[in-house]
Amino acid sequence: MVEYKVPIAPGMVVLDALHYVQAHDAADLAVRWNCKAGKCGSCSAEVNGRPRLTCKTRMDALPLDEPITVQPMKSFPVIRDLVTDVSWNYKVNRKIPPFTPRPNVKWKMDQRDVDRVQEFRKCIECFLCQNVCHVLRDHDKQEQFGGPRFFVRIAGLEMHPLDSLNRTELLKDELGIGLCNITKCCTEVCPEDIHITDNAIIPLKERVVDDFYDPVRWFLRKLRGRERAK
């Protein structure tokens, strides 16, 4: 732990303080950032133990009578200083079949359907939800679990009215949605206020249960064979 004294200016955010440290005390301090406007999702870190975007965390909202701690995201390997290797997320992302419209689809949608998936498209991929998820953070289940970010992406695809695929088998087997015990930590830290648990994970869990554990559907599947990409 290295301590730096930083002058506070009105409107200052934690990322400004890190830039001050780079400019005055530690020119080689590694910090990943890009937009400084809460839109690129690059500057994620743990400020006073809480996962946050440093560009959206105001210094005047933090207690200044004790040191403000800034640490890299715990769930990912550190490359250097505050920069972590988040490439595992991109590997998970590649497992998800992209939007696949039905053949000869008419490109017309109800506004309610548009609004429903629009929430999921707000994600800026800051990976704070992945960082805070107990399944990844405390139990290191990266091999069996996709994480909230990718449940949000799949929710956006599965709830898209013009998409033709069914991704419940992927959710159940490869992305381990059953491991999520809906503690809502991901929702709490989302800087875009996406209702990850309520609007993405729980509806997807319900779809998995319907597809794989509903006895009537189970019986019909036995009769007709496994329904895959509808």
Binding site: Y4, A17, V21, V70, Q71
Partner: peptide, 10 residues
């Protein structure tokens, strides 16, 4: 006003 920023890698 000064703040003390404590940075650590892990």
């Amino acid at each position: 006003i000064w703040a003390l920023l404590a940075l650590s890698s892990k």
